[in-house]
Design a protein around this nucleic acid. Structure first.
Lengths: 357, 357
DNA sequence: CCAGGTTGCTAAACCGACTTAGCACCGTCA
DNA sequence: TGACGGTGCTAAGTCGGTTTAGCAACCTGG
């Protein structure tokens, strides 16, 4: 491996000054502490020439701040566009000169505690607690020892901690409105229904999407034509639900409002196997914008989870906490829930229906 | 945020010993340096009671080693199962008590250099250079200042650096053999062909898969029935290629060997639109094992990119380099290319064909 | 009774930067 | 001539640990 790193002491010696002077110059306090312009220039030249870079570990020890954030998630990879969330976080962090520690808990609280501790040991300046699918969950014990932000995680009641979430309810409302505006009156829900099922602990997203959908339908004076509840949201459930709707002899054209793209994928299969066409016979709207949404024929119209933006926003919020001393923040900024819009990706799966009625 | 951290000095004072003694006890060198059992017990009790945890930054400064690795990739999220690679790396690192810095370059060499430097500034013990799709690429300048391993990246000629790669050629061979053993003789390649196209710089994977396929076919005395080359491997190209094959009036059953799952996805669409059935009329084999492979009906038989295993192996190799002083390694361990098998995910897209002739 | 060995622990240097009090020098003014 | 203030720089302490040399006190054997 290469030669040893150049230290500040090396620079100082080569420039013929004390290391205090070198430090002052390199940290930009030369003017303030009255180091002559000549000496400053010399120190800078020498530093440049030797390729000096400050040792971040040493600075971290001295200043107590490491320009490092921790990103603790339940699962990095398992789901959907999770990687994009990390990507957004990394980008935003880099723009501010921060690095990211990434850790994964597999959903186990004990692992989470250990990870948070390992990060605190390394003196991270703040921690992002992320979940790859929106939900609620108690916080690890040590999290109050450092600035923290929740990402895709609903804060427990009373917790004074900012959180960043997709605006699922609004997306639900907009999805329903999209179909209503296209003239649809027969709208089947696939993935959740107005029934008594309560999986709010399992999937906050389901709950909120449903709530948005139902309120939009209600305003239009309409009830869902049917609602198939299933918490796992796998393609085969979309297929089954659609089969049942078709078997009942539903009059086309009608519309399917799927709770995610996997369900919509299954619905596509069932529609095609029945010899029907999307969007002529059946309109489909969905949520998530998984990559498969763009591969389907016709493309699937869906409301995208803004993962990248969520990651960015979480880092930006966290850095605000890190950089502003505890007291100097606007009141209430602590417990704020930040909801990011889910943008519509309009592809070809929704057709207008001649107005009836 | 919470109270100040407990330092070793706090523990020492509370236990009534010098901080040297406390340090020796906490690092397990108490026996060796003849600290009495009584004092050792006292120190440990006090440490436990106060909740002492060593400050990793300080230890890093003193020992010059931080139990931290850097993971530099071109793109965390954009492709396929990339997240799994990181997941594997994180897991393996945690098992050894290491944390991972993750950074992304967007493929820009300047960003890469900056990232590597930022990591070196933070005294990482080693760096993994990863690419989300297999390819070859010059190394950043500073990488020789630290132990490093390439992940999914072909080492430049002459570079003495270990690398971890999927065994694409073997997978290609096995894919072809799978079809041959099922009795197929009419095998169409979709994604690359035996032609003069050379995108080895673009996609090493394509090149190696093709090479494996061709050598297996050659041994069986068979030439590909056709070969559609296209470097972007999008679903629509799979669709077009399959359409063309069908339009030519190819006699079913025949087999499609797609270079990745996206192409296979497009092929499925074309086959179904033509009113044919997989696998009765058309057998399909592919590579990658993207999540969509399991959603298709029938499930797509494909050779999985072992992303998780790749990530794990890269970390394990790197830790070997980190823990063994430069000289004490078996000769040749430096430049080794480690190829990991691509496991077959056998689903329902291949059917046996009655043997003809 | 003392040289020499053990036992049990600590002082002090060190890693590489940042930070503050203060020193030496010069010029000015009373 | 000597008090005073400004200029330009440095010594030394600090962050929180690790590491090594070495000090006291006790024990042993001749």
């Amino acid at each position: 491996m290469g030669t040893k790193r150049v230290t500040l002491a090396d620079v100082a010696k080569a420039a013929g000054v004390s290391s205090s002077t070198a430090s002052l110059v390199m940290t930009g306090r030369g003017q303030e502490l009255r180091i002559s312009e000549a000496v400053q220039a010399r120190v800078r030249d020498v530093a440049q020439e030797l390729g000096y870079r400050p040792n971040a570990v040493s600075v971290g020890l001295r200043k107590g701040t490491t320009r490092t954030l921790g990103f603790v998630s339940d699962s990095v990879a398992s789901s959907r566009l999770a990687g994009d969330m990390i990507k957004g976080a990394i980008e935003a962090a880099r723009e501010h000169g921060f690095m990211l520690f990434i850790g994964e808990t597999g959903g186990k609280p004990a692992e989470e505690t250990k990870l948070v501790e390992a990060m605190l040991d390394r003196q991270v300046d703040g921690i992002i607690l992320a979940s790859m699918f929106t939900r609620s969950r108690p916080l690890p014990a040590d999290i109050d020892r450092t600035p923290a932000v929740l990402l895709n995680l609903v804060p427990p009641p009373g917790a004074k901690i900012p959180s960043v979430l997709p605006d699922e309810e609004r997306a639900g409302r907009e999805a329903a409105e999209l179909l209503l505006e296209a003239g649809h009156r027969e709208i089947h829900l696939i993935g959740a229904g107005p029934g008594p099922d309560d999986w709010s602990s399992v999937s906050v997203a389901a709950h909120q999407r449903l709530s948005g959908i139902l309120s939009a339908l209600e305003e239009a004076g309409i009830e869902p034509a049917s609602g198939f509840a299933d918490p796992s949201w796998l393609p085969e459930h979309g297929w089954e639900a659609t089969q049942r709707i078709l078997a009942r002899g539903a009059a086309t054209p009608f519309a399917l409002l799927c709770f995610n793209d996997r369900l919509a994928f299954g619905a596509y299969q069932a529609v095609q196997e029945a010899g029907l066409t999307i969007p002529d016979n059946v309109s489909v709207v969905s949520f998530d914008d998984a990559s498969v949404a763009g591969w389907l024929r016709p493309g699937l119209t869906t409301f995208a989870l803004p993962h990248r933006a969520l990651g960015r926003r979480a880092v930006e919020l966290l850095l605000e906490l890190v950089e502003n001393p505890e007291g100097s923040r606007p009141a209430g900024a602590n417990g704020l829930v930040h909801r990011l819009p889910m943008p519509l990706r309009s592809r070809g799966s929704v057709a207008a229906r001649t107005q009836t009625g």
